[in-house]
């Protein structure tokens, strides 16, 4: 049976499809939620999906450059989370709520 074969023989495609689904979930989260921090979480999910596809390409082609890229993405994600949370704290102090629509009023 070719269908079960395709399901059982886990290969690069399976990981890439998982990554695509994860990316979509993150994207829906970013589009649908109103809480800034949950939106940040959606972005983290998307970054993780990208990491997963990098790692699976790297693993299946035996090329380490993908892992280096994941390393960079992780660092930048950590930095982005720090800045995003700092902004959220600033917004919360002013409005006692962290809704995305308050970001319209951000001014220097």
């Amino acid at each position: 049976m070719p269908m079960t074969e395709a399901f059982l023989n886990v290969g690069l495609n399976h990981y890439l499809i998982l990554s695509a689904l994860l990316f979509t979930m993150g994207m829906i989260g970013v589009l649908m939620r109103k809480n800034v921090i949950v939106i940040l979480m959606g972005i983290e999910l998307m970054l993780n999906a990208v990491n997963l596809s990098f790692i699976s390409f790297s693993s299946y082609s035996g090329n380490l450059n993908g892992q280096i890229m994941v390393f960079f993405v992780m660092t930048i994600a950590a930095a982005e989370a720090a800045v995003g949370l700092a902004l959220a704290v600033a917004i919360y102090k002013r409005y006692k709520e962290i809704n995305i629509r308050f970001f319209e009023q951000l001014r220097g």
């Binding site: 495609n13 890439l16 499809i17 689904l21 990316f23 299946y60």
Partner: peptide, 18 residues
Amino acid sequence: LIVGVLMSTDMLDVTSDS
């Protein structure tokens, strides 16, 4: 994305075993 992945199976030269 999924259709793209499925259609480009042969383009990348990888071992698609376990």
